[in-house]
């Protein structure tokens, strides 16, 4: 018997879509552990998002405090650890987002819990499958601590669906807040009307072969036509052509959209690790020997300068014909 404390990130009045992957895992874990799912919302605006969380979890705990205006691992971790103990949790989970990856190991340390990072599935209540070696192998690990911490790879879990009735929302005190000298300075946000790279249905990525940031405009046109998120290879982000948070790959975002366009990307292992879970992969590259063609479902050997404008016009034609 044990409950699953699922830390959920939110954005305004709703949960972030990444949180639904965690809740889907939490539901499966609750069955395996004979307990229930407790969604935990911490920080400024948690109360406002609690009604949305209650659609997915039978219990919701909200922690909001003036001292938690910005996320800091130092202030959040003790709260999560304390609530795990107070609520009989045997699993504490989060999605493997930037925040989840920063926070959960710290929570694990406070709980002396073994942790499985970035899991792809759960095969028994204490046993998890997770990618290792940049996704080139899958490791099955068993964890023997009374409490286990887990981060969940978003692309490996179907988002949780709404429950028949709303869960019960309670609040918990933050307790003493000590940031240990750390302060949030600022967030330089990348504003975009496009969907989040992590959960877009279509992703258009460009690589080194795009040559300049200016040249990405034509890819952005394609992306906007398809309602896609923009991505890039490490070569393109490192060269400063596009923002760093566009990077798809082992050291960037892991994506698994329905449709992935890799344009002028050679296909380094590092990049492939971030996108090879995509349902359909299209590679457009002028060099037929690039490794990207080995993972592509459809390869087009062509220069992007010619192919992309033509692709845009063909897709427009297709849309018009429907």
């Amino acid at each position: 018997m044990g409950n699953i404390l699922a830390l959920c990130e939110f954005n305004g009045p709703t949960l972030r879509s990444s949180a639904l992957a965690n809740l889907a895992f939490a539901r499966a874990a609750a069955t395996a552990h004979g307990g229930e799912v407790i969604a935990l919302l911490v920080g400024a605006g948690a109360q406002a998002a609690s009604a949305d969380a209650a659609k997915y979890a039978p219990k919701v705990i909200v922690v909001e405090d003036a001292g938690l205006a910005h996320y800091l691992a130092e202030t959040y971790a003790p709260i999560v650890a304390r609530l795990a103990n107070e609520n009989g949790a045997t699993v504490v989970s989060a999605t493997a987002t930037a925040q989840g990856k920063d926070l959960l190991p710290r929570v694990a340390a406070l709980l002396d819990a073994g942790m499985a990072s970035d899991i792809a599935s759960m095969t028994a209540k204490d046993t998890f499958v997770r990618p290792i070696l940049s996704g080139n192998a899958l490791s099955t690990v068993q964890i023997s601590t009374p409490i286990v911490c887990v981060t969940v790879r978003q692309t490996e879990f179907e988002p949780a669906t709404e429950l028949g009735s709303a869960g019960a929302v309670t609040t918990a005190a933050a307790g003493a807040i000590d940031a240990l000298g750390a302060t949030f300075d600022r967030l330089d946000a990348q504003k975009s009307d496009r969907p989040d790279l992590g959960d877009a249905k279509v992703v258009v990525s460009g690589g080194r072969g795009m040559k300049t940031g200016e040249n990405f405009k034509v890819l952005e046109e394609l992306a906007d036509l398809l309602g896609a998120a923009m991505g890039a290879s490490r070569a393109a982000t490192d060269a400063g052509m596009v923002p760093a948070d566009w990077q798809v790959g082992q050291t960037g975002k892991i994506v698994a959209p329905n449709l992935y366009f890799a344009v002028a990307i050679s296909g380094a292992i590092q990049h492939l690790a971030g996108m090879k879970g995509s349902k359909t992969i299209v590679a457009i590259n002028k060099n037929k020997d690039e490794p990207i063609f080995q993972v592509a479902d459809y390869g087009l050997v062509a220069e992007w300068e010619k192919a992309i404008p033509e692709l845009i016009s063909e897709i427009k034609k297709l849309k018009a014909s429907r």
Binding site: M115, T127, P131, N136, A137, L138, T140, S144, V295, D297
Partner: peptide
């Protein structure tokens, strides 16, 4: 943490040009 086993992911089916 005990590693029970490691497997290689199935390769993607061959694509087409």
């Amino acid at each position: 943490i005990k590693e029970l086993s490691v497997t290689l992911p199935p390769p993607r089916a061959a694509g087409q040009i």
